[in-house]
């Protein structure tokens, strides 16, 4: 049984001009200890999916359908208080900007201890000892001394290490990391990614790594889900998705990544832009930009289909009945 199972999840935003569907009928699974990368452009619904899983969709956003199961138990319809006990304890979260993720008015030690004592029966002193261990583990030098420092006394990279310590401090089974390195310097990004990867391996924690950076995914993830306009376009192992992409969108995405040492004349470019939520075309949402689109793509919406490669793609090219094209 998968650690996390998302089935036909649908996230809606009621607005004055009608209901916007930010996440449209997506399904995915994460196994114990697995790193699932979720990539896509801004607005593809990756962060919404993450927020829905940790139960912190910003109102008026709401889960309109489907279910989310953690270790087999449904968690999408839990009352707030029950979900609160799961957040932090079973599902940790890391957000994009370490500079704003920590409360500026409390020491990092206090924020750690507070999180630990909220979810465990540890005494204040034990929690403190545990927190200091964690800080050393995430690579904060002189953790004992830095325990009583305030967030503004750390650099961005160090703060993200503290954030990781906070996300891991009660040993959750899953961490939803939403763009954990986007706000950091490139040189720091690699360190943080390596740290996250190592820690999660050591603790056996699964990660849902949300990013728009294929490089990060390629380096870290076991499997990848590519999202486009609120749906999953393609899903498979990192190797298959990066090397043998089947969905025209993924192909375009991979072709647009510059690689050092590869002598490519021009990077490919996907014409156009992802549709806004208000004007998603009928049929496959990608059809107006797709170089391989045919009639069926404009009328019917494809679900994930097994491709001729190892991945699954939401593309009519891989429907056996229409394989004549």
């Amino acid at each position: 049984m998968a650690l996390l199972e998302v089935r036909n999840l649908r996230v809606e935003f009621p607005t004055r001009r009608g209901v916007l569907v930010a996440v449209d009928d997506i399904s995915l699974e994460i196994s114990e200890g697995e790193v699932l990368g979720v990539v896509g452009e801004s607005g593809a619904g990756k962060s919404m999916t993450g927020s829905a899983i940790i139960g912190l969709l910003e109102p008026p956003g709401r889960i309109a359908g489907g279910e989310i199961r953690l270790e087999g138990e449904r968690i999408d319809n839990l009352p707030y208080e029950k979900m609160r006990r799961i957040r932090g304890a079973k599902i940790g979260a890391i957000f994009q900007d370490p500079l704003t993720s920590l409360n500026p008015l409390y020491t990092i030690g206090r924020q750690l201890v507070e999180t630990i004592t909220t979810h465990t029966d540890l005494s204040e002193a034990d929690a403190r000892a545990h927190a200091i261990d964690l800080l050393s583990e995430v690579g904060i030098p002189a953790a004992e001394r830095r325990f009583d420092s305030y967030p503004h006394e750390f650099s961005g990279g160090m703060r993200q290490r503290v954030v990781i310590a906070l996300a891991l401090c009660v040993n959750p089974r899953l961490i939803v990391a939403d763009e954990p390195t986007t706000a950091l310097d490139v040189s720091i990004q690699a360190q943080i990614i390596a740290l996250l990867k190592r820690l999660c391996r050591d603790h056996g924690t699964a990660v849902m790594l949300i990013t728009h950076d294929m490089g990060v995914i390629a380096e870290t993830a076991d499997r990848v889900a590519v999202m486009y306009a609120g749906r999953i376009a393609e899903v498979g192992t990192v190797r298959d998705v990066v090397k043998h992409a089947k969905h025209p969108y993924t192909e375009g995405l991979m072709g647009s990544i510059p690689l050092v040492g590869h002598d490519v004349e021009r990077l490919t470019q996907i014409e156009g832009a992802m549709p806004r939520l208000t004007e998603i075309p009928t049929g496959c949402a990608f059809n107006p930009r797709c170089p391989k689109a045919f009639d069926r793509c404009r009328t019917e919406r494809p679900d994930l289909l097994q491709t001729d490669g190892a991945t699954q793609a939401a593309c009519w090219l891989y429907d056996r009945e229409t394989a004549y094209v």
């Binding site: 609160r84 900007d97 507070e114």
Partner: peptide, 17 residues
Amino acid sequence: RTDYIKFARARGLTDRA
């Protein structure tokens, strides 16, 4: 609306805290 409040919720702190 700030990130640290969202993060505090994500850590599962009680509403009161």
